[in-house]
Simulated assay, not measured.
Amino acid sequence: MTGCTPDEPHPGESCVTFEEPTICGSGSHVAFISSADEHTRLREGDTGVVVSVDDLGTFHVAWDPDGHIFGLVPGVDIWRPLHPRWDGEHAPMTGGAE
Rank of each mutant, 00 (worst) to 15 (best):
G27P: 02
I78Y: 02
H39M: 10
G67I: 07
L72F: 08
V53T: 10
L56T: 15
G96E: 04
L42Y: 01
E8T: 11
H68M: 07
C4V: 12
F70M: 07
G45F: 09
P11T: 04
D37I: 00
H29I: 03
G88W: 03
D77M: 04
A31T: 03
I33C: 00
T2V: 08
P74E: 01
D64F: 05
R80N: 08
V76T: 12
S52I: 08
D37F: 01
T47V: 15
G3N: 02
D66M: 06
P92L: 10
A62G: 04
S28M: 02
D46T: 02
L82C: 09
A36F: 08
L56A: 15
G57V: 07
D77G: 03
A62I: 04
E20M: 14
V53Q: 06
P84D: 06
H83Q: 10
H60A: 14
E20G: 09
E38P: 02
H68S: 11
D46C: 08
E20I: 14
E20N: 13
G71C: 02
F18T: 15
G12A: 01
D54M: 08
G96P: 03
S34D: 11
F70V: 05
I23V: 07
R43F: 11
G57Y: 03
L56W: 14
E13K: 12
G75L: 06
R43D: 13
G95Y: 09
R80F: 02
V30Y: 00
L72Q: 09
G71P: 03
V50A: 11
P84H: 06
G3Q: 01
C4G: 01
L82A: 07
G95T: 09
V30L: 01
G88E: 05
D46F: 07
H90A: 12
S28E: 05
P21G: 12
W79M: 06
G88Y: 04
L82N: 08
D46P: 00
I33P: 00
D46I: 02
E8H: 11
V53W: 00
W86F: 04
R41V: 12
H60P: 01
D54Q: 08
I23K: 03
D7A: 15
E8A: 11
T22F: 04
L72Y: 02
G75H: 09
H29Q: 12
F32G: 02
V73K: 07
V51L: 08
G96N: 02
G3S: 04
T58G: 11
G45K: 10
A36E: 13
G71L: 05
V73N: 03
G45E: 09
P92E: 07
P11Q: 04
V16Y: 13
